[in-house]
Amino acid sequence: METKEAHAENPKKNMLTLFYQFRELGLLFFIILLCIGVQIRNPSFLTGENILDLATNTSILVILSLGMMIVLITRGIDLSIGAVIALSGMLTAQLVAANPSINPLLCLLFGTVIGAVCGMVIGLLIARVGLLPIIATLALMNIFRGLTFLVSDGEWVSSYQMSDGFVALAGGSFLGINHLIWIAVFFCLVFFYFLNYTRTGRQIYAVGSNPQSAAVSGIKQGRVLLLVYTIMGGLSGLCGVLWVSKFASAQGDTASGYELTVIAACILGGVSIAGGSGKLAGVLLGAILLGILNNALPLLNVSPFWQNGIQGFIILLAVIVNAIVKRRVDRTHLLRRAG
């Protein structure tokens, strides 16, 4: 009797399972719908220029989302990245202001190292001392932000203090495509390889999926956590340099609250806060969706003051829909096992 019922419901449930397995496709579908909608309202949306513009503006979000994804996969969270961006951006900008002739690539390296050190501190507190990620990163967000104000003494570093070479880091283009896009593509490829084809990459998933069995399998969890937060910090540091170069100014409150946008992109992309799961394609689409919203809302003459509210609403809606679908899928698995 039980099997009969299960069979009767099967086709629908299987559709759901399918949807869940290929939820990236669902997201893509939604993005396409959104694009069509926007295009109908404003034909200047899908022009080559605007698309490149959109991609340039989304690149930093994509890079940061990759880092946040691996943090979330290990069941962690990093709220400090906005502050790390500001700190590394400010220090790099000061470096450039003091030595205008410095090689821009050296600046990138400098910022990345600063970020990686910040990330390593967080990683040590979480992996070695055993603090909760949310508490540790909340506290360090404050400290990094405070340091930024201290080193800058509340002053801005503005565009006239920056060398042309430095501004060209994020402003220049190669083959007609902005450097930022190239950098984002580069990191996507690196992460794809890292997560799918290296042992360490898979260990990140293992630690998040089941910490107890990871311990039994002999995976060194502390090292994985330390690595993950250091990578996140390094990426934030790098993005700090790009950010300052792109907007041609470094301020104490640069990227304030940006961590929320990054986390939102990951969650939209289907990364589970409970750890263990998350795909690069999903995160990429999540970041692109947010990028499109940011780009399209002004084109649709939506007041900028609505953007926060709309973003918050979409995030909540996405996580709730995701949770509901996942519940139904789990139930299907349960039924299949029972039957």
């Binding site: 042992r199 898979r202 260990q203 998933y205 293992a206 998040g208 999926s209 089941n210 069995s213 990871a214 399998s217 002999g218 995976i219 263990g276 799961s277």
Partner: peptide, 13 residues
């Protein structure tokens, strides 16, 4: 590891 594939569970580490 509930989130990972059978192959991966077999060959973990």
């Amino acid at each position: 590891y509930p989130d990972l594939s059978v192959t991966e569970n077999i060959f973990m580490n």
